[in-house]
Computed example of a mutant assay.
Amino acid sequence: MSRFSRRQGCLIILGLIFLLILASSTVSTTAVVAGRNVNRFESTALADVPILNYHKIDTFYHALSIPPQEFEEQIAYLSLNGYTTITPDDLMAYFNHDKELPEKPILITFDDGYLDNYTNAYPILKKYGFTATIFIVTDLVGHDERFMTWDQIRQMQQDGFVFGSHTVSHIALTNLPRNQAMDELVNSRKEIERQLGTKVRYFAYPTGAYNQQVEEMVKQAGYRAAFTIRYGQAGIDSNPYALERIPIFRGQQTFRSFFIRLNGAPVLERFGLIRN
């Protein structure tokens, strides 16, 4: 398929999804979810898993800031439509054929470790019985009032939340010399392990920047997988050190955008418009 025809196909598919939404009387948390890929128990192929990517849950007018009310609307939608949150360990065990997942698994992630993840997102997620994985910048924890403290992080950990590394200082690793990049990877992992008393296996690339050399350093630093900001679902054919996510942004129609991005990913993958 040519680049032009792929773009046309993408627009057509997104247009159809948009029309599907408009055909409903209202777009609400009771909307019917679009079909998923074939279930692993009906096929030898493993189903892809959506991984949501958030940053801030607050009222600031910024693309990365989702208002708490709208965040709860999204979480309520996932709950009403039968989704169950999983951990990165669950995901990797699933892809290694060692573990079964719930019928509709979803991994919810946050980058940076902002204070509002604790004050705003945490109560909402607990209300619906959900957990999340949060990638933290260790030099900012407890040292910047905009970010969480270690005591807050430990409280969330006790409720099943998982914490991974987002480096020491949130510098794009592709811009650093190798030794400095390794320090960012290793020292952040060690600090989280020291503070939380648990093995840190997962990493998210600051600013989403990575290349093959950075991927190799992430492996050498002891991580089991790493997360990007590339749009798509994680599948058995995904690179475990470049896992796709579904970034969620604020907009004039935030829930509609969330609905389209969540339900559009499997459709676009089926047509080879993303990941391939």
Score class of each variant (00 low, 15 high):
Q252L: 13
R40H: 14
A45I: 03
Y118H: 10
P266F: 01
G208W: 07
E73V: 01
S188M: 11
Y223P: 07
G9Q: 04
N53P: 00
S165P: 14
I192M: 10
I21K: 04
Q8I: 15
A121T: 01
N175M: 11
T228L: 15
Q180R: 14
L101C: 14
D183T: 08
V38P: 01
D112I: 13
I192S: 06
T149F: 00
P206K: 06
F259H: 09
L273V: 10
L46G: 04
L273F: 06
C10F: 09
A221F: 10
L91C: 03
T85F: 11
K104L: 11
N276V: 12
R3N: 04
D237M: 10
R275L: 05
G35R: 10
D111P: 01
V33P: 01
L64M: 14
G272D: 01
I229L: 13
D183Y: 12
Y231Q: 04
S165D: 14
D58E: 11
V33D: 11
V214W: 04
T131P: 05
V137I: 15
L125F: 04
V168K: 15
K190M: 05
V214N: 05
R261N: 13
Q155E: 13
K99S: 10
Y77N: 08
I66V: 14
V141L: 09
F110Q: 08
T87V: 02
G82Q: 02
L196M: 12
S65Q: 09
T87H: 10
A242V: 08
Y210H: 15
V38S: 08
K219V: 15
T207W: 14
F161D: 02
G15E: 00
Q220Y: 07
L243I: 10
F4I: 04
N211W: 08
F249Y: 15
N276H: 05
P88V: 12
Q69T: 07
V186R: 14
R275N: 10
L20D: 10
I21G: 02
